[in-house]
């Protein structure tokens, strides 16, 4: 089964800055992938490369097994909503749907019909609320019946209710079509609910990638009195180490159960895990009487 999205050594440079570098990843079929990372991490660049709107400076990207620039026809199976959900503001909702119907080979009217029960067909897109525009953009991509959905910051500008409704519509569409989804968002909380796979980008590089359940299962937080570290049974690698007063907190990857009674072992939440794999200097340290440089394995 060809992976819906795969990259090998992918890099993109704008003038002198590398927006993306050394990006190698494979998205599993049918997964709902969270593409996480701070702003300007390269998330939008990666998605633009996947749709052929940008061409790689180095490396390759393949979408459903094809090069999106050489085989632009693959876009018939890809639904893409760019940041800000760009649409023609002077078009009415009905005209926008008509546009999508006429420029797509495959089109299912039922999705649009569902949308029209909530939105007035004659409203101009420019007059819609952000939530409604997002809903419209989502209906348009779902109407294509794509095999891969790429959404760039779909929650930006949405209030929590609109965000929840968006997610409901999205998940319903995915349940129906079995599409693979990649959602780029710099707010982990928005996508935590649905992602089973995560790709973390920061400063243009992949910092972490994998199945969420697996990642959460193999990382632990260890807390204990401050002391020089030896090897700890069950710990494969220390990802992050923090001191505060007399307490030492470690984020570790495990290769077995940790039974050492001198450590309190806790599971780590997804957001904290991702934060740890981003640049450590970003992290607000609790109350550091003494600032010790963080040792970061990444």
């Amino acid at each position: 089964m060809t992976a819906p999205l795969a990259a090998e050594g992918l890099g993109k440079r704008f003038r002198r800055d590398w927006a993306l570098r050394d990006c190698t990843l494979t998205i599993p079929d049918g997964a709902i992938v969270g593409l996480a990372g701070p702003n300007a991490a390269g998330k939008s660049t990666l998605l633009a490369l996947a749709t052929g709107l940008l061409g790689p400076t180095e490396g390759t990207i393949s979408v459903l097994g094809l090069d999106p620039r050489r085989d632009a026809s693959v876009l018939a199976d890809v639904g893409y909503v760019a940041q800000g959900a760009p649409l023609y503001r002077s078009f009415t909702v009905a005209e926008t749907i008509e546009f999508a119907r006429r420029t797509n080979a495959r089109w299912d009217d039922r999705v649009a019909d569902g949308l029209l029960t909530v939105l007035d067909a004659k409203t101009r897109v420019g007059a819609l609320s952000e939530g409604d525009r997002g809903r419209l953009a989502l209906a348009l991509v779902l109407g294509k019946r794509p095999r891969l959905l790429l959404l760039d910051e779909p929650f930006a500008g949405l209030d929590p209710l609109a965000g929840r409704e968006f997610l409901q519509l999205l998940m319903d569409g995915v349940a129906e079509t079995g599409a693979t989804v990649v959602i780029a968002s710099h707010v982990i909380a928005d996508i935590e609910r649905v992602c089973d796979h995560i790709v973390l980008l920061a400063d243009g590089r992949v910092r972490l990638e994998g199945n969420v359940e697996e990642l959460l299962g193999t990382h632990r937080i260890l807390m204990g009195p401050r002391r020089p570290l030896g090897t700890i049974r069950g710990v494969r690698e220390v990802v992050r180490e923090r001191h505060s007063g007399r307490q030492l907190t470690l984020l570790v990857t495990t290769d077995g159960p940790i039974v050492d009674p001198s450590w309190t072992v806790d599971r780590v939440g997804l957001e904290e895990l991702l934060l740890a794999y981003m640049a450590p200097e970003r992290l607000p340290t609790p109350q550091p009487p003494e600032k010790v440089p963080l040792r970061w394995h990444g």
Binding site: Q168, V174, A175, R193, D196
Partner: peptide
């Protein structure tokens, strides 16, 4: 149905 649950809770259908 999976669709009903997912459309209500906004969670991953695989779940």
């Amino acid at each position: 149905t999976v669709r009903e649950v997912v459309a209500d809770l906004a969670i991953n259908p695989n779940t």
